Amino acid sequence: MPDNAPAPGDADPLGVHGVVPPTVTAFHEDESLDVETTAEHARFVVEGGADAVFPLGTNGEFPLLTGEERDRVVTAVVEEVGGDVPVIAGVGAPSTRETIARAQHAQRVGADGVVVVTPYYYPLDHEAAVGHYQDVCAAVDLPVYVYHIPSKTGNKLKLETLSELATIENLAGVKDSSKDVPWLGQAIDANPELTFLAGSDSLLFPGLEVGCTGLVSAVANAFPELVADLYEAYDAGDEARARELQSTVYDVRRAFKQGPYMAGVKTALSLRGFDAGPLRSPLRTMDDETRTALEDDLDALGVL
């Protein structure tokens, strides 16, 4: 458990804290699923200092996978690192029925918890959001973490909706990627029994400051040691060092963003000698010129 960093909420039986990378899904060159390398990436981040892993988040390209592929990813990651660190598997989908199917599979194969993104595409009102999470939580005996990312789903949870979700028996926490610090601060203040996970690399240190217990970091997919050092410095009470490392994370994040959306992580991994293959179409990898620019930037930062 943390020393100086915020403690997980009492509603969270896993006590999720520290660095929780949203691990990548690897593909072969023809974009078919590479489950072996996907599992190896989970091992890579654990060996780099991750405290838990979150397969099938945004960095895991989950909307581009079939249900069967998603099940294979969860199975492979659980088999690789389950028992070493908690595996909280992304199971969210636009429909409640599909979300429950993925969640029940995750439970069957031994995942420790499930992360449920708010349903996307269709607008979601208070009653629909509450009903969705009630049904998912009733269908499994695992802790359930809300994944709040309104920029991608189009659905932002009201604070009063979150407080009602917090009353559901096995709803354990929230991974917030809204980048809305006032919303996050108020959510933590109103629901101290939940575990909150900072879901943006722009808000790792600030997230800890407002009460997040864990850091779901895309940068940690390629440089887990960097984010683990930031968390450990904060937990040791060395906030000056944690701020300094957050500054480095900002620089790495900016370097990643010079290419196509999400291409930075897999390109940086390849520069470290870990080949997770291409992104699945319509996402694109970096061209040679941008890859070279990224390598130059990361080399100048001293993280390669």
Rank of each mutant, 00 (worst) to 15 (best):
Y147N: 05
K152E: 12
E80W: 05
G154P: 04
R102V: 03
A139F: 08
I100Y: 04
V87N: 02
V109Y: 03
H105W: 13
V73L: 05
D135K: 12
E80V: 10
L124E: 03
A93G: 07
D84R: 15
E69V: 07
Q134C: 00
C137N: 00
A139S: 15
D84W: 11
P123K: 14
E98T: 08
P123C: 07
V136Y: 00
R108E: 15
D135I: 00
H132K: 00
V74Q: 03
R97C: 01
A101F: 13
V87L: 04
V78H: 11
V81T: 05
V85N: 10
V78G: 08
G110T: 04
A103P: 05
E98D: 11
R108I: 05
G154M: 06
E80Q: 15
G110M: 08
V140K: 02
V109T: 08
D71A: 15
V87G: 02
G83A: 02
V146W: 09
A111H: 04
I88C: 03
V115L: 15
G83S: 06
Q134E: 14
Q104Y: 06
V146H: 08
Y122A: 15
I100Q: 02
H105L: 10
Y133A: 00
L124C: 13
N155G: 09
G131L: 03
V109M: 03
V91N: 07
L124P: 00
V114N: 06
V116L: 07
H148I: 10
Q107A: 14
G110I: 08
E127L: 04
R70H: 12
A76R: 13
T99F: 04
H132M: 01
T118I: 14
G131A: 11
A128K: 09
V81E: 04
H105R: 13
V74L: 05
L142Q: 02
H148L: 13
V146Q: 07
A101D: 15
V85G: 10
D71E: 14
H126G: 07
E80L: 03
E127C: 00
D71P: 02
Y121E: 06
V130L: 14
G82P: 06
V140I: 12
A128F: 01
Q107V: 04
V114T: 09
G131H: 05
T153S: 15
V77R: 05
H105K: 11
V81L: 10
E69I: 07
G92P: 13
E127P: 00
P150S: 12
G90S: 09
Q134T: 12
V116T: 14
L124V: 12
A103M: 02
G113W: 01
A138L: 00
S151V: 14
V116K: 09
Y122Q: 14
R102L: 15
Y122H: 15
Y120T: 10
V115Q: 14
V140E: 02
I88G: 01
D125V: 12
V144Y: 07
